[in-house]
Amino acid sequence: MKRHSIAFNSYGVKFSIVSNDVDLLASACKTARSAMLGNLIEIDSGTSRHELSLELVDGGVHFKMNGQDHGVTPWPKLEHFFDTCVRILVAEFAEGFVFLHCGVVEWNGKSILFPGDSFTGKTTIVAEFVKRGAVYYSDEYAIVDREGLVHPFARPLSIRHRTDLSIRFDTPAETLGSTVGAEPIPIDFIFLLNYRKNAHFRPRSLSLGEGVMQLMPQAIPLRVNPKFTLLLLNKICERAKVFRSNRGNSKFAVNKIIDLIDKIGL
């Protein structure tokens, strides 16, 4: 099989995309660029440390990531999964950055992180802030550099269908009336919110250790690079005020969060 490959560096992660088909390779590279919002540069293939292999075969594309076999799937169906794999690869192995699974907005000059797993209502809160004019940074990853600054990763908000949570609608922040963050900013507030129907917003301030512990499950590179990740989480929580609370209705929760931020100042 003739192999064609193109290698990229994204946030210090060097990976190559390999295929037996030039057109497929071109499509995959386009998807990878889109996955990382253009934050990748082409490099010499010999220096890459990770491989995403796409082999055109009967019935579709045989996809392997670092040797892990993901089976044969038609490209249109595989594309979304491939996009996710690229982001996860970069998030896990980024050098000098920690990717946290978080929503991020800037409100009146203060940056706010909303860490959380999928299906915990992170995007709902971010979207509510964005509708009120907050600067949008991300609804997926907080990309934090070694100085503790969070960088924008402003993919369109991925808003889920009300009843079928597996259906999502990509909604650009601009269509909700917001602007998108351009510069890295320090982290001021972190709200760990847990959605419960009709729950009251009763924030509890967390200690430094508690804050770091609560952020750890959302830190993608924790197992790959625990030392750097812990150092950075510590740095983040030393500066930021970290709160934990249940919350019910998103509009009500955002009102309370804004009140709290205004009260605390900084």
Partner: peptide, 19 residues
């Protein structure tokens, strides 16, 4: 919901994340 499971749309019959 299994963050950060790469497949948010489907799983293959073997229970493995897949497109």
């Amino acid at each position: 919901a299994l963050t950060p499971c790469p497949s948010t749309t489907n799983c293959n019959p073997g229970g493995v994340c897949a497109p």
